[in-house]
């Protein structure tokens, strides 16, 4: 990894924008998931926006839309692309790390509780397929 890379990468990033394969609705491959059931990715003028939905009863919890930090292929080592997103719900924060591999969106969740409930902070990973692919 060459941490000296800088402005050249940024201009490449600006030129490449959000690749076509990302925007759309992504559905959890595990229909019984109790975590994130659906992810909607949107190209907002060259920025990647993410909206996640958690499994809740009686209807999914809408986590709202956040701007992701997108890493295009030009600045990725060993990956075609990746992005991170961060949610702060007050009682819990969730740092998401995602990449696409073989048409599957892989989302790693780093969940941290801030409410003193005694629940363990925990890591989990879920897989999504694109609905309109």
């Amino acid at each position: 990894m060459d941490l000296s890379k800088d402005k050249t990468e940024l201009s490449e990033w600006a030129a490449s924008g959000v690749p076509d394969l990302l925007p759309g609705t992504w559905i959890n491959t595990n229909g019984a998931s109790r975590g994130i059931t659906r992810v909607v990715l949107t190209d907002r003028g060259g920025e990647l926006a993410m909206r996640a939905y958690g499994d809740c009863d009686p209807s999914p919890c809408d986590w709202g839309e956040v701007t992701a930090c997108f890493f295009p292929k030009e600045i990725c080592f060993h990956e075609a692309m990746a992005f991170t997103a961060f949610y702060d719900f007050g009682f819990m924060e969730s740092h998401l790390l995602a990449h696409v591999k073989l048409g599957v969106l892989v989302v790693a969740k780093f969940d941290r509780f801030k409410d003193g409930s005694g629940r363990s902070n925990y890591f989990s990973r879920e897989f999504f397929y694109r609905l309109d692919a």
Binding site: R34, I36, G54, C56, C61, M92, S117, R119, S124
Partner: peptide, 19 residues
């Protein structure tokens, strides 16, 4: 307890025991 996905909805007393 508060949650935004079902997998985190552990009953509070059980969660407390693991503090």
């Amino acid at each position: 307890v508060k949650h935004v996905k079902a997998e985190d909805a552990v009953e509070a007393p059980a969660a407390k025991s693991g503090e």
